[in-house]
């Protein structure tokens, strides 16, 4: 029986909700720091915005060419994966400040609202409408409401990927957040 105070019942500050408390996996390799490569990190930062633009393009182009919400979201997610592989969870935290469950929740809400809103105007649930807008410079713009569903899908997948990175990635790091040197030293002693 441990004598440490029961951490479960304390009020946990909001900023630390996602911080893993204990180690999640057994460790074979003792790796205290994230292996950083300057080249990879710089390239990742340069490429990052471009990849995001490609993902947005895929989102909008899905109606007429290959693409769509899924592909767009996955490409955006892979961009974040690249940043994470380059710099670890610190890098990831610098990229994303919003909590992933909020992103996931927003994406899902948008998708469900796309289904419900038509019912408010008397159409069957999940109907779609095609709007044609004429804009002064760009000309005629055809716009379908099921694009919102795609946007919801996009947001959700981005949120899912970042969530996985945060938990599966950061939670499996040794020397990452949530682990202190004392625990590491204790394990060193136990192993020898």
């Amino acid at each position: 029986m441990s004598t440490e105070p029961d951490r479960e019942l304390e009020r946990v500050p909001w900023a630390e909700w996602d911080r893993p408390r204990d180690r999640w996996l057994m460790a074979e390799h003792n790796c205290n720091t994230w292996p950083r490569s300057l080249l990879l990190e710089v390239c990742a930062r340069i490429v990052f915005p471009t990849v995001l633009m490609v993902s947005v393009y895929l989102l909008f182009a899905g109606h007429h060419d290959a693409g769509g919400g899924f592909s767009g979201g996955l490409v955006a997610g892979l961009a974040f994966v690249l940043r994470y592989v380059a710099g670890g969870s610190a890098e990831l935290a610098a990229t994303v400040r919003i909590r992933p469950p909020v992103v996931i929740g927003s994406g899902l809400s948008i998708a469900v609202l796309t289904a419900l809103v038509p019912a408010l105007v008397g159409q069957p649930v999940l109907s779609s409408a095609i709007w044609k807008l004429s804009l002064p410079v760009l000309g005629e713009l055809k716009f379908t409401t099921n694009l919102f569903l795609d946007i919801g899908v996009y947001l959700l997948i981005v949120g899912v990927v970042i969530d996985l990175l945060r938990t599966v990635g950061a939670g499996t790091e040794l020397g990452g957040p949530g682990l202190d040197d004392e625990t590491l030293e204790r394990e060193e002693v136990e192993r020898t």
Partner: peptide
């Protein structure tokens, strides 16, 4: 996509469990 959301949340909940 709801299933995807569940999967992500579930992974998070397992990993962050004490």
């Amino acid at each position: 996509i709801a299933v995807l959301a569940i999967a992500a949340t579930g992974a998070a909940s397992l990993i962050l469990a004490r």
